Simulated scan of single mutants.
Amino acid sequence: MKNTSILLRLWGDYACFTRPEMKVERVSYDVITPSAARGVLEAIYWKPQIRWCIDRIHVLAPIRFMNIRRNEVSSKIAVNGPRKSMKDGKGRLGIYVDEDRQQRAAIVLRNVEYAVEAHFELLDKSEHPKKHYEMFKRRVEKGQHFQQPYFGCREFSCNYEWQDPAEISHCPESLQGQKDLGYMLHDIDFDEECTPRFFRAVMTDGVIEVPPFHGNEVLS
């Protein structure tokens, strides 16, 4: 493992890693996406001098889906609306939830548990990697975070703890063998006008190898 590598155990009651091809109802991917895992790490420890990269995802609990209904707003705030209101000095700057609420069905995951292997890259070469590694580990052990980590939706909170590689649980029997999960969102390329990038996720005995973000296996 690299000297910037970490292993974190994540678990929670519910999760929803929404497939982008579903336009109305939310339908979750089978497992956590690399971008969602990165979001958990950044919620715990984010610094402009480093960039988190997900290397491997261990699925430690059987994949179970359930149907729920959630309250959501039915519209978005257009960019030009607040600008015009601020220029004119009148108008609405936001959305009133009570007037814009609607119920939508969602297919979510329940009782999820993962072990995420990741490392960070230094964006500032004057920084020392050990400093950031120790600060991250200390924050994990104390349960500190900048904001509550969550699994896809903010109401689905994520628990976390430092994981010893020798203590990773064996994958459930239902996950043994090889399973093709299809194309999965890797992350968003913010340098290319927020372009989503995807990779072919294959789970082998509960483990998904995540290719490098700019590797040949990742497609726009």
Rank of each mutant, 00 (worst) to 15 (best):
G89R: 00
R69N: 13
I77C: 04
Q176V: 07
P149N: 01
L185Q: 03
A36H: 03
F17Y: 14
K76M: 12
C158D: 08
V27A: 15
H170V: 11
S220G: 11
D187P: 00
H170E: 14
D100V: 09
H145I: 01
I188T: 12
V24H: 08
E134T: 05
L175S: 02
I208E: 01
A15K: 00
I50Y: 02
V218K: 04
Q163C: 06
T204Y: 01
G143D: 05
P129K: 00
E25D: 13
H214G: 02
N216T: 14
R200V: 05
L219E: 15
G182T: 11
Y183L: 07
G39N: 07
E99M: 15
I107R: 14
R138S: 15
V140Q: 06
D189G: 09
L122F: 02
P129V: 02
D98I: 09
V73G: 05
H214Q: 12
L181E: 01
E193T: 06
R139M: 13
Q147N: 02
K2A: 14
E127W: 04
V207A: 04
H128K: 13
D13E: 15
L8Y: 08
K84C: 00
Q102P: 00
Q103E: 13
E155S: 08
V207C: 05
K76H: 13
D88A: 11
C194P: 00
H128M: 10
R154T: 11
L123M: 11
V112W: 03
P34M: 01
